[in-house]
Amino acid sequence: MDSPKALNSLSSAAGENVMDTGSTQETVASEAAPRIPLDIRDHGSVGDAYETIGTPLVENAKMSARKVNVYYGDKQAITDVSLDIGRNEVIAMIGPSGCGKSTFLRTLNRMNDIIPICRVEGEFSLDGEDIYGSGQDTVLLRARVGMVFQKPNPFPKSIYENVAYGPRIHGLAHNRAEMDEIVENSLRRASLFEEVKDSLDKPGTGLSGGQQQRLCIARAIAVSPEVILMDEPCSALDPIATARIEELIDELKENYTIAIVTHSMQQAARVSQRTAYFHLGKLIEVGETKQIFTMPRHELTENYITGRFG
């Protein structure tokens, strides 16, 4: 859960607190007390058969997902989500904790396969190819759809080895010189090369948090993926490191399609072209980032971006 205090202080300037969600929490509060936050479990007007507001589907999509349902055991984590990820765009996925945005992200390169109790339904495609089809190999898929995780997780090996590992197992370099080039290019594109060029043989775990995360990005782009999935890549970083990663995302979108899950709405607003708002496993609204943050059409989206959920 998000810290309620932080959200409250964020939204304290939002002015009048109008409880328009039909919740039962509309109580007579004392004047001195702060506004009572809305209950996150409130579905508002969203029923089981709902429709996503906005433009979840785009033309010429890089990846598309249709009617996705994901279950962890008996618990349904994602309900009937359909979403396209456009070519060379950055799409941000926002929503309160437990809303299924990370789960959705991980279905896109089948990372959920490693969780035994997880069951995925729906149709997924990458450039029109079925991701979950019997002919699809997860190893190849994950080479094409790379991933950067919430916590920086470099291998406990040298910086060079961290980047070289992917190309090596896929046989992308035929000799040492080619490998050196791949490593240098990847580190450069992750804007880390200048900082580590003299210590490529030092362990990657010895870098600072922000550097580690850029190393993980370098590692992901070393295998030349087409799509990069980022699961809250800045949640463990300070604002300066975060700013560098955001700059990097901006540069990377020239060549890659990026889907990023984030808890920071400012970050979503800064880096993405489109934004999808998830709520309790449902995709509530998708649209141009500018439109989502200035004119949200669904009241849940509005409540979330104004920080009304506690």
Binding site: N109, M111, G146, F149, G166, V223
Partner: peptide
């Protein structure tokens, strides 16, 4: 996270 990292690059 080490396992995820390795699987994530296609190991």
């Amino acid at each position: 996270s080490i396992r995820e990292a390795a699987l994530g690059v296609g190991a």
